[in-house]
Simulated scan of single mutants.
Amino acid sequence: MNTVKDLNKWANAHTYITLDLLRIALGVFLFMKGISFITNIQYLSDLISPIDKIGGGMFLIHYIAPAHMVGGIMIAFGLLTRWAIIAQLPILIAAIVVNFMGEMHQQNLLLAFIVLVVCVFFLFYGSGKHSADYYFKMQK
């Protein structure tokens, strides 16, 4: 627990508006990706087809889109950012793995890798000073 507090103190001391804008852009991107998956469910089904042989394909379809939408909103507002990112990590890792198991889509691989790197950064950095987490912490 002290590690998280130390990371929050460091992040609040070294906060920059560009990092907050990056966090908001990540959240909006994930939200829009979730909307895209909801509106085109066949595309999502085709994306997860290489790992559908393992089982749980319907579970994945019902997990990925809502996790992106809810997680994207939470990340954009900076509310429970680390928890929202933890929910995104299995999806992003699977997106990278699926590219190697099925047909290689270099754009999807690059996009998933960049989003994964940004998510890992915010997993350690946290939500920053301009966030709902910081606002609610200061209300005590």
Rank of each mutant, 00 (worst) to 15 (best):
Arg23Ile: 00
Thr81Leu: 08
Lys137Ala: 14
Ala87Phe: 11
Ser49Val: 11
Leu123Ile: 12
Lys140Cys: 02
Gln106Pro: 00
Gly56Ala: 13
Ala84Trp: 04
Leu19Asp: 05
Ile93Trp: 00
His130Thr: 03
His130Arg: 12
Arg82Ile: 05
Ala87Leu: 08
Leu109Trp: 05
Met138Trp: 09
Asp46Met: 14
Ile54Leu: 14
Ile73Asp: 06
Ile114Glu: 04
Leu21Arg: 01
Thr39Phe: 08
Met69Ala: 02
Val120Thr: 11
Leu26Ile: 08
Met74His: 06
Leu116Asp: 00
Ile41Trp: 10
Tyr63Arg: 01
Val118Ile: 15
Asp46Phe: 12
Val117Cys: 11
Tyr134Ser: 12
Ser131Lys: 05
Phe77His: 04
Gly27Val: 12
Pro90Glu: 05
Leu116Asn: 01
Ile93Gln: 01
Arg23Asp: 05
Ile35Tyr: 13
Thr15Cys: 08
Gly102Met: 04
Leu22Val: 13
Ile17Phe: 08
Ala76Leu: 07
Ala65Cys: 06
Ile61Thr: 11
Gly126Trp: 01
Leu22Asn: 00
Leu47Phe: 15
Leu89Thr: 10
Ile35Ala: 13
Val4Asp: 08
Thr3His: 07
Ile96Gly: 13
Leu21Pro: 02
His68Ile: 00
Ala65His: 10
Ile64Glu: 01
Gly55Arg: 12
Gly71Thr: 03
Lys9Cys: 02
Ala94Thr: 15
Ile41Met: 12
Val28Leu: 15
Leu110Ile: 14
Val98Arg: 01
Gly56Ser: 10
Lys9His: 14
Met74Gly: 01
Pro90Leu: 01
Ile24Ala: 11
Gly57Gln: 07
Leu116Trp: 11
His14Phe: 13
Met101Val: 11
Pro66Leu: 09
Phe59Ser: 14
Gln106Glu: 07
Met1Lys: 09
Met138Glu: 10
Gly71Lys: 02
Ala13Ser: 15
Leu92His: 07
Val98Ser: 06
Lys140Val: 05
Ala132Leu: 15
Gly34Glu: 06
Gly55Phe: 11
Gly72Trp: 08
Gly128Ser: 10
Asp6Phe: 11
Phe124Thr: 07
His14Asp: 12
Ala132Cys: 09
Gly71Gln: 03
Lys33Met: 14
Ala87Pro: 02
Leu123Cys: 10
Ala11Trp: 05
Leu116Met: 08
Val28Cys: 11
Pro90His: 08
Ile93Phe: 07
Leu22Thr: 10
Leu123Gly: 09
Asp133Asn: 11
Met1Val: 05
Tyr125Arg: 10
Tyr134Met: 07
Val97Lys: 02
